[in-house]
C-alpha cells in the first residue's frame, strides 16, 4: 500500500511525468484516430435518417460529444485546481493550463455546431435561452482562465489565480446540464441521461457514444502533449532538463 503511494507521488513530479506523458500520448492519439474513423462511419453510413430532421440531425454526432467534453474538461480543471491548492503540487497547475485551450475549443465547437443546427431546425442561429447562455458563459470562463494565467509571469501565482477561476466557475457546469429541466428553454431535453432509457435509435446512440469516446481520447492525447511543452518551459533551469537526450547537440 505504502509502496503504491510512493509510486503515485513519483509520477507527480514533472521530471518523471515528462517522459511518461511522452510514452502515453501516441497511444491515446492512435485510439482517438481509430474511434474517430469508426464513429464517422457509423455517423454517415450506419445511422439511419431521422423521422423529423432528415439528414440534418447528423450534426448531433459532433455537437453532443463536443458539449460533453467542454463541460467535462472544466470539471477536470477544477479537480486539478483543488489538488493544487490542497497539496501544493506543481504538476496540477500545469495539467490545468494544458487542458484549458482544448476545453475552450470544445466549448466553441459546441456553440458553432449548435448554431448550424439551430438555423435550419429552430429557425434561428442563436437564442438567449438558459442552455445556450450558460454554455456561452462556459466559453468565457475558459477564455478568462487562459487570459488570467498567461498575464501573470510567476507560474506558481498564475496557477493559484487560475485555480480560483476554475473552482468558482465549476458551478456553471451543473447549471448548463440541468438548464433544460429547470427552466423553459428552446433547447430540447437530454436524449441520453442516467435516469431514463435513451430516446434515440440504437445505431444513432452508438455513433454518438463512439464519437464522444474519440473526443475523449483526443483530449487526453493533446493535453499530455501540451503538458510536456509546459513542463519544459517552466523547468528550463532544472538539471534533468539539461540531461534530456533531446537537449544534447
Amino acid at each position: 500500500m505504502s509502496q503504491r503511494l510512493i509510486n503515485w507521488f513519483k509520477f507527480a513530479s514533472p521530471a518523471s511525468f515528462y517522459p511518461l506523458a511522452g510514452t502515453l500520448w501516441p497511444w491515446f492519439a492512435g485510439l482517438a484516430s481509430v474511434l474517430c474513423a469508426v464513429g464517422l462511419w457509423i455517423s454517415f453510413f450506419v445511422a439511419p435518417t431521422d423521422f423529423q430532421q432528415g439528414e440534418g440531425y447528423r450534426i448531433i454526432f459532433i455537437h453532443v460529444p463536443a458539449s460533453w467534453m467542454s463541460m467535462f474538461i472544466y470539471c477536470v480543471m477544477a479537480f486539478w485546481a483543488a489538488i493544487g491548492i490542497t497539496f501544493n503540487t506543481r504538476l496540477s497547475g500545469m495539467m490545468s493550463s494544458a487542458l484549458a485551450p482544448t476545453g475552450a475549443l470544445f466549448a466553441f465547437l459546441s456553440l458553432w455546431t449548435g448554431a448550424l443546427w439551430g438555423k435550419p431546425m429552430w429557425g434561428a442561429w442563436w437564442v438567449w435561452d438558459a442552455r445556450l447562455t450558460s454554455e456561452l458563459i462556459l466559453f468565457f470562463l475558459y477564455i478568462g482562465y487562459i487570459a488570467l494565467t498567461s498575464a501573470i509571469d510567476d507560474p506558481r501565482r498564475a496557477d493559484k489565480a487560475g485555480a480560483i477561476v476554475a473552482l468558482v466557475g465549476v458551478i456553471n457546469v451543473p447549471i448548463i446540464y440541468f438548464s433544460v429541466k429547470w427552466w423553459n428553454t428552446l433547447h430540447q431535453g437530454a436524449s441520453v441521461s442516467m435516469t431514463k432509457a435513451p430516446t434515440m435509435a440504437t445505431t444513432m446512440l452508438w455513433g454518438m457514444l463512439i464519437m464522444a469516446l474519440a473526443f475523449w481520447m483526443y483530449s487526453i492525447a493533446i493535453a499530455l502533449y501540451r503538458v510536456r511543452a509546459i513542463i519544459l518551459e517552466r523547468e528550463r533551469h532544472a538539471t534533468w532538463v539539461a540531461e534530456l537526450p533531446e537537449m544534447q547537440r
Binding site: R58, L105, T113
Partner: peptide
Amino acid sequence: GGYGFYVWGSFGVTAAALLIEALLA
C-alpha cells in the same frame, strides 16, 4: 438531404479546429 451546408459546416470546422490545435501544440 438539403442540409449539406449545415452538416459539412459543422464537421468541416470541427476537423479543421482539431487539426490546427494539434499542429499548434
